[in-house]
Simulated assay, not measured.
Amino acid sequence: MKPWRTGLLVIATSLVAAFWAPLPASAFGESDTRGEAEGKQIAASVSQSGIKVTQIGGPTGGKRGTLASVDVNWKPPPCWYEPAFTPAQLKTFAETNGEGNVSIRQGWQGTRLWTDHFRDEKDAANYFAAPSTVAGYKNYNLGEDGHFWRGVAPNVLGIDDTSLCGRLMFWQNAGQIPDVPNAPTSKTLAEYAYDKIKVPETEVELRPTAKSTVNLPTWVWLDKGTFQEVKVRAALPNTGLWAETTAKPVALHLDPGTPDATTYPASGDCTINEDGSIGTPYAAGRASEAPPCGITYLRATGGSPYQLKASVTWEISWPGSDGTGGNLPNGTFESTQVIDVQEIQSVNR
């Protein structure tokens, strides 16, 4: 019977093929992770990658957040292919569950669709990528060493090209990366890890600490131990692929929260010193000096404190298992501190 569309579903009698959106993770059990015991694989939604990201360097406690790329046009890869099932895992899944994604835009509900194609060698239609018809497999390729691969997309609906990573799940021998467009690389993992990096909040040291004074500098600095490199390792199981993505702090930008202020330097960009610190700590007797990193407020707050924004720029680099490496766009992380400014003509030194 020819399928017909209802919303996001294509229905064929009692068998259902869901298009344009991955089935929810709940369709596969309570877990959305891979790595279950042989024969008991739980297949995650195609919006869930099997890439494992582990922080291997830098602070892990305190308040942290993700980076925003300084290049607004840069985005991580929208999709790629990953190993999904061994033959034994696919047999168990197909014959006891049979509800899941066979590609990033095509879901099969009902064991017959899975057993027809992956056990009984029947061809299957691929509605969103070439080839439009895919030859079937014999008995799930049991006895062979390898995996069935499938497209993965963190945001399926955000992919403009409907054919991108749209192949039906296909076989690849063990120890090999498929020779197809959008096959994973170390760079894929490095870019995926970009959004997983957690950096510490930017809470700068200020002097004076309680209140600043109109026309007298507020010194700003960060001790060398405050900001360290953050390194994460991303690995894709059953491929040998990995990448280590490192975020290194390289500059602090100050936004005083009002146009009635002067920043030091004038750009508001305080660079990292050779020892890893930023700026210079205030010392007694230097209250009237222009600091290497700081702000002079020209108007009192008048009961409504200024919102001092401090953002650290992080330089991103990576090496990978395939011998490649390089840089990704710098990232920034911003935090806000409340600052009061009083209008008096003296200050304790």
Rank of each mutant, 00 (worst) to 15 (best):
D160Y: 04
P87N: 10
T313Y: 03
Q342W: 01
V232Y: 03
E144P: 00
V10W: 14
Q172F: 00
W314Y: 06
G100E: 13
T13M: 04
F93W: 15
E274V: 08
A190N: 02
G325Q: 03
K248A: 11
K63Y: 04
R233I: 04
C79Q: 06
P178I: 01
P181I: 10
S163E: 11
T185L: 03
P24K: 05
T245M: 10
A37F: 12
A124F: 09
S288E: 10
G50P: 00
I295G: 05
T301A: 12
G302Y: 07
G65R: 01
F333H: 10
E144G: 00
A129H: 08
S335M: 01
I272T: 11
I159S: 07
G58R: 00
Q337Y: 06
G302T: 08
I11V: 15
P83K: 04
K248W: 04
T33C: 06
D260A: 14
E343F: 02
A135M: 05
T162V: 15
V230G: 02
Y140R: 02
I344M: 02
S288Q: 05
T258R: 13
A125R: 12
P22S: 12
L9P: 03
G7P: 07
K91G: 04
S31H: 09
K196M: 03
R286H: 06
V232W: 01
E244R: 01
S69E: 10
Q345P: 00
G62P: 01
A235C: 10
R105K: 14
D223A: 13
V220T: 10
K138T: 13
P77I: 08
W20P: 00
S317C: 04
R5L: 14
T133N: 10
N139I: 08
V10A: 15
R5E: 15
G320E: 04
I42V: 12
L308R: 09
C165R: 03
Q172M: 02
D269S: 13
G146D: 02
S47H: 07
L328T: 04
T296R: 06
I51P: 04
Y297F: 11
L216T: 11
C79M: 11
Q345W: 04
L308T: 08
